[in-house]
Design a protein around this nucleic acid. Structure first.
Lengths: 381, 381
DNA sequence: CTGTTAGCGCATTCAA
DNA sequence: TTGAATGCGCTAACAG
């Protein structure tokens, strides 16, 4: 089945020895010597050769289009032919090559997920939720983590775009102030959904929880427990989630007539070391707080460890509330009061919206509920 | 630049109206009406059109081969031409389409990582280590988690193979007894490296830690602390890691002349619920153990919680040692004695070996060291 | 109902 | 030094 490279006839071609490792051919019709393109040659003796529709077509003596149609389940096919094809495909363990399809359709069936870290409970869980929905819908997932570095985030977005992902699920870093890299994504019309750490300045869907209400309840709870000098170890101002929780904190204080002391409000970059430093700072103030509302559970736990190491009694001398309901918070001693958010569901929801976005784009912010879980770290009895 | 679909001439073709949304063309030479393939038509007016070498070639009035060569950095190119091409490419923000390349070379530059779960510290950390190495080497990573389900694992392997990953990093589920799906991978000559939960029966590299020594030290430590009736809440027999840690446990008992009591050895499936059930079971034996060596930290922590809930004092009435040095173990009360393993490094190592495997396959088992970290949960003072 | 043809974007081979 | 032709595997349009 080898055509002459010159006269295109097939009946006169024969092998004519091997030169520098390459099989050479000779056409008796036009007296022409030639070698086959490497790919074709490889095709013949590669052990890991994947079965293609051409193999099936050749085997059956029909055209590859017919095979394609049968495999794709088109209706206008002779029943016998279809059966032949399907049987052989099964027997040969035929697997369509998604690369070819991707090239043809410019669709990879891959969704990129970009998160700042996955050391803690939160992001891995969101990812699992997203994966649940996405894999049901036939998508594979490519996960990147930016390690809270803006540069890495930019590089990751570039890499994912370069891999031609069909959509992007993103939670930004604490350092992300410039969002041009996401503008590029939108310009190329690649569906993009933010979750948790969102970019409200971009016209694309966002999935968040009711951070304001959660924070408000948390602080109100502290007030009701009798705490009066409540500090807030907050996230960086760049993140909407920080600002919303901050607002909940402030409004709760205000509602209950408590003064806002700026000394007790600290924005930080969510790293462990800084959490420890600021916790120590707060506890060594001349007038230390009697309670701290932390932006999230890892922060709350760092505070707790610092407090313990300083001999500060929880909850008697210091009430602590976190955010997220990380499983650790139930385990630690004393168990941590925290604001539960539907983490798994957030992943599912973000994925659903991304899928929807691929069909008919709509820009909306989706908000999931939060719920206060009261535990020992804040019950001042 | 449109050729007639019949006579292949280009000079006589003109548009002839739009029918059902499709542009139709008309050849004045051969009097033939036709439409262009969808792809070509799309190409003309797609907003998200990516720049290709053809665009560059057309713009410059040269052939795409030349452009390709210039971009690929071949030497046999006129310096002026090269510069022209490179400049225009930069200006147009040309990005080579990896899909085309993948199709051509049968290489995707994607590595699949398959883990049983990522709820806990261990697997996410390994993944981060692997990613560090792989992305440096120009690979993207596709992560799947099987949720400890054999069927999901098989499906995931299939999906990853179907995506034509260039290599696979795997840790199997507790249920994986049949490894035919991995045999398929090897048969197709896709590099495969196991880590942590490995498949020694397969001829492919494995990365593990010195589980035996770690377990031995852990149990010996318990003996030295004066514990005499040491139980072992072990992993499923199907996992090599369970068997090795079990052996370490048994040998340590034997070395110190302690009897092996089968009642005190329990294999389980690593689920939280079962951990709790068996912990309760052990503690309610007529002759309960005075110490428990747990297969891993999550298990140890479940045991600790159960013990606390039953009012059993740790470490006075019950010594506990885990395995992995999960960050939680330092935080929990009392802090957990555990066997540290270089988790991050395990990911890096597995990735390195996978890369090496792509060059020159070699079958070896790589073992990383472990180290006992003594904390409060086992110091019987 | 089926075969032919074209093209997705690229690298490569051969001919000039 | 360059261009034309080929094929990676597949689908879709079109012509019988």
């Amino acid at each position: 089945m080898i055509k002459c490279a010159k006269c295109r006839q097939i009946d006169f071609v024969q092998k004519s020895g091997i030169v520098r490792g390459k099989q050479r051919y000779f056409c008796k019709a036009c007296d022409y010597h030639f070698t086959l393109p490497e790919a074709v040659e490889n095709r013949k003796n590669k052990p890991r050769h994947q079965v293609t529709i051409i193999d099936i077509a050749n085997e059956l003596g029909i055209s590859k289009s017919t095979v394609s149609r049968a495999l794709r389940g088109h209706t206008d096919i002779h029943e016998g032919t279809r059966k032949m094809i399907l049987d052989l495909a099964q027997q040969l363990e035929y697997q369509p090559n998604p690369l070819a399809n991707a090239l043809l359709k410019s669709r990879t069936n891959i969704v990129g997920i970009l998160v700042p870290e996955f050391r803690h409970y939160f992001f891995p869980t969101v990812i699992m939720g997203a994966q649940e929905i996405l894999s049901k819908a036939g998508y594979n997932v490519m996960i990147c983590q930016s390690d809270e570095s803006y540069d890495t985030e930019v590089a990751n977005v570039k890499a994912l775009m370069n891999s031609r992902v069909d959509g992007l699920l993103v939670s930004v870093t604490t350092q992300t102030n410039n969002v041009d890299h996401f503008r590029t994504v939108l310009r190329k019309e690649v569906p993009l959904v933010f979750f948790n750490r969102v970019c409200p300045e971009l016209d694309t869907p966002q999935v968040i929880v009711d951070d304001y209400a959660g924070a408000f309840q948390a602080v109100e709870h502290l007030v009701q427990q009798g705490y009066r000098r409540i500090a807030h170890l907050a996230g960086p101002v760049s993140l909407l989630v920080s600002r919303l929780r901050m607002k909940g904190y402030l409004d709760a204080l205000q509602k209950h007539g408590l003064p806002v002391d700026n000394e007790l409000i600290i924005h930080y970059d969510l790293t462990e070391e800084k959490a420890r430093i600021y916790a120590n700072y707060l506890l060594s103030l001349p007038q230390p707080p009697d309670a701290i509302f932390a932006i999230n559970d890892p922060t709350a736990i760092e505070i707790m460890l610092v407090a313990k190491s300083r001999g500060v009694k929880i909850p008697q001398e210091l009430g602590i509330v976190g955010f997220s309901n990380d499983p650790i918070s139930a385990i630690i001693e004393p168990p941590l009061t925290t604001v539960e958010q539907p983490v798994w569901e957030m992943g599912r929801q973000a994925a659903r919206i991304l899928l929807e976005q691929m069909e008919n784009p709509r820009i909306e912010t989706y908000q999931l509920p939060t719920r206060l879980v009261v535990r020992g770290s804040s019950v001042n009895c």
